[in-house]
């Protein structure tokens, strides 16, 4: 679990470099990604199912990004965009197209539906995360504008 945490941190951090995040924020980008992935893993361990695990993970991720953004006085986008990468259904896209080509319609529809469900769960997770009122986060940076 700790190994997974560290590796997901490095994975997110490297993508933050690719999108030219400010150097001082790289560690925080890595941290948000790692926390999101950790929540996802815990969800999977408790048999939440992929969709619900993704939803809780994105929700946690969004809240954490907002907290860090408030403390560090930077746009939320920086942490959210990089942190979301471990959860984006890249594997789903791959398996869906793979089974489509293999003409295995059972597996194709299984993975296709799952990819759509995961994407939907991510959408909901972010939306719930942003539904929390900004005033809760504003308390974290009184010196802001």
């Amino acid at each position: 679990m700790i190994l997974q945490f560290i590796i997901s941190m490095f994975a997110t951090l490297s993508f933050a470099v690719l999108f030219a995040a400010p150097k001082s924020e790289l560690v925080f980008c890595g941290l948000t990604g790692a926390i999101g992935w950790l929540v996802y893993l815990i969800g999977m361990n408790f048999d939440f199912g992929t969709a619900l695990a993704n939803l809780t993970a994105t929700f946690a991720l969004t809240v954490i990004s907002r907290i860090i953004a408030a403390v560090r006085k930077n746009p939320v986008t920086i942490y959210l965009i990089t942190g979301i990468f471990p959860l984006v259904p890249g594997a789903g896209i791959y398996y869906t197209s793979y089974y489509f080509i293999m003409n295995d319609m059972n597996e194709f529809s299984h993975y296709g539906m799952q990819t759509i469900k995961v994407a939907g769960a991510i959408v909901l997770g972010i939306i719930f995360g942003f539904a929390l009122p900004q005033s809760w986060f504003n308390a974290l940076h009184r010196r802001g504008r």
Partner: peptide, 11 residues
């Protein structure tokens, strides 16, 4: 996307 520029512009 260039996150560094967004942060700088925000500042």
């Amino acid at each position: 996307t260039h996150l560094g520029r967004i942060a700088a512009l925000n500042q």
